[in-house]
Amino acid sequence: MYNETVARLTYRALLGRRRAILLSILPGLLILIAIAVRAIGGADDRVTEEVLGGFGLAAMVPLIGVIAGTGAIAPEIDDGSIVYLLSKPLPRRTIILTKLWVAIAVTMLFTTVPVLLAGMIMNGNSQQIAGAYTLAAAVASIAYSAVFLLLGTVSRNAVVFGLIYSLIWETLFGSIVSGARTLSVQQWSLSLAERVAADGTGVTSDVALPTAVILLAAVTVAGTWYAIRRLTVLTVAADD
């Protein structure tokens, strides 16, 4: 189920200099915003919710999910180096599951830590707001990793489709069409955050908790299963 060599290669690919800088930009920005907010307006629960929800969970987490999820496999398929993994007596499911663990770990590292830090800086975890959004970021990291890893195995334009989903579907349609919010990883994870945050805060979701938990699990499992299936029948392009 887990292969250390595949994991090492995937970590090296994801945390290489260029991609590591890309992964660090948004978390760095979130921390800077948090410092500025605290310095200018002092501790404010409402502003903390807006920054962590509107920027952290709505923009930063899916974008880092796209970079880590697709980056865990898509470049290898594009340049053909995946043949060095596929030509080994190694079950394809082990390759996908290992890459999924790595994508989840990287996404969680680059989302939960800055969300918690930013929350602590802004209001010192007043009303459990920082803790709630950190949990939401952790849960969303798992689902996004599975979805974007799948995209990496099915399309050469995985990053584009990932960005369309996260920015256009979740952020744009999600704010205009209420139905779109039901099919949104962000809303499912917010449903869990709502439970953790103190009553009366603005941490709310349009999706009920049982539905959110079922949908999160279903998307993660189905996405991973289909990614394994795709890799099992992946044909490597011939030049003639």
Partner: peptide, 24 residues
């Protein structure tokens, strides 16, 4: 394979070692 993609961020030694490990 004919294609050139081969984990360019590794050294040659690391690449061959990774292949040996993948063969267990």
């Amino acid at each position: 394979p004919e294609r050139e993609g081969m984990y360019d961020y590794l050294t040659g030694g690391e690449f061959v070692l990774a292949n040996a490990e993948l063969h267990r």
